[in-house]
Design a protein around this nucleic acid. Structure first.
Length: 195
DNA sequence: CTCTCGATGTTCT
DNA sequence: GAACATCGAGAGG
């Protein structure tokens, strides 16, 4: 069953944790790819020096200031896309970064998109975007519409244990934000990006 | 397995 | 002009 907007209009830490085990669905060229979310990170507001919105309202960050349930896709390091989902209320800039997924169906297409096999298909934020053919054209896309890109409940999910840690790749942030345990992942899942 | 380093272009100063 | 929510190749153990 599709996840609706009220799920995302919530405390970002809760949404980040609750997204674990959910299914991400991507449709393009009449093909459907699905995967289970196994790792996320929360980026919360102007006071979070790791969050892009700490810079204030700019062309890049305006999506985060908008309605929950929108995709925030941005480009870094000159070659990688990152997929986030906007949370909280309008004018509170926050989002959850999807850092890793476990393929459920359409593996053959993902392998082709990535040109690798095994866990390297999708055990990282840029890798899963490449596997699912997500780029900047999906920035601002409403993921509650149930087209192109949306999320669903996982009916057959097995039980799992949730672990947390500081966020990855934010050396530029203040110490208090670097240390905040705002990364969530499914313990022992092989697709989690790092230990 | 580990570590180091280069790629590459958008964004904001 | 600097920095960047990363990845993969290559060298070494």
């Amino acid at each position: 069953m599709k996840i609706n907007r009220t799920f995302y209009q919530n405390n970002t830490l809760q949404v980040a944790e609750n997204l674990l085990g959910k299914i991400i669905v991507r449709e393009y060229n009449k093909q459907r790819l699905t995967a289970m979310i196994v790792e996320t990170e929360a980026y919360i507001g102007k006071d979070d020096s790791a969050c892009h919105a700490a810079k204030g309202l700019t062309q890049r960050t305006e999506i985060m200031f908008g309605e929950a349930g929108m995709a925030y896709v941005y480009f870094v390091y000159g070659m990688h896309y990152m997929l986030n989902i906007v949370t909280e209320e309008i004018n509170f800039p926050a989002a959850v970064l999807i850092r890793a997924v476990e393929p459920l169906s359409g593996d053959d297409v993902m392998i082709n998109n990535r040109n690798v096999r095994g866990k390297n298909i999708s055990n990282g934020p840029a890798k899963l975007c490449q596997a699912l053919n997500i780029d900047k054209s999906l920035n601002g896309w409403d993921i509650t519409k149930g087209e192109k890109l949306w999320l669903e409940e996982h009916e057959a999910v097995s039980t799992f244990e949730i672990a947390h840690s500081p966020r990855v790749g934010i050396d530029y942030a203040k110490e208090i934000d670097r240390k905040a345990p705002w990364r969530f992942y499914i313990k022992n899942n092989p697709y989690v990006s790092k230990k």
